[in-house]
């Protein structure tokens, strides 16, 4: 992994996630938008070497925290789940778009629920319709995720991420 380039990509994704630009593609009155950091987390956890994936997961979670309202909840949830995915990437194949979408959706639900729970633990804040928004955001991320995944795959060489190999030679 080329960490300076990763930092630039992470900054761009964080600013897009936290800013208003994505509102132009938001859906419903809940302003549901795709979560770019979630897609980045799943992509890197699947495609990076395990140690890099673990570090990247915690850093992406920290970025999600500083652009939010509390520090810690998403560092832990993204870090934990990203690390688990990175342990599975040798047995889980993410070649098909539908698999990528499913991975993004499931990861989003787990990190979203865990993140909201830890945010409540830290700040004591409750909110209406949390699970509607978490579900909607994960679904939207899963739908547009494979497209972003394609873009990330295209710049994986620039990022220093070796593309996952599929088939009998994978893992050799």
């Amino acid at each position: 992994m080329r960490w300076v380039r990763f930092s630039i990509l992470l900054l761009v994704c964080t600013l897009l996630n936290a800013g208003n630009l994505l509102n132009s593609i938001s859906l419903s009155s809940f302003n549901i938008r795709p979560d770019l950091l979630l897609v980045l987390l799943v992509f890197l956890s699947i495609n990076c070497e395990t140690t890099d994936a673990v570090i990247a997961s915690f850093i992406i979670g920290f970025a999600a925290d500083i652009s939010g309202t509390a520090i810690g909840p998403y560092t832990i949830s993204f870090g934990l789940i990203g690390s688990v995915i990175s342990q599975m990437h040798k047995v889980v194949i993410m070649k098909r778009m539908v698999h990528q979408a499913a991975a993004i959706f499931v990861t989003g639900i787990i990190t979203g629920v865990l993140g909201r729970f830890l945010t409540f633990f830290k700040t004591g804040e409750t909110a209406s319709n949390v699970y509607v928004v978490v579900f909607g955001s994960c679904l939207y991320s899963a739908l547009v995720g494979p497209v972003i995944w394609g873009g990330l795959s295209a710049i994986s060489g620039w990022l220093g991420v070796r593309k996952q190999r599929y088939g009998r030679l994978a893992g050799r």
């Binding site: 520090i71 909840p73 560092t75």
Partner: peptide, 17 residues
Amino acid sequence: LLTAGLVLLLLPQSVTK
């Protein structure tokens, strides 16, 4: 890394905000 995350989580909101 997990310990660092937990420390950040346990720091009061008034410190990390």
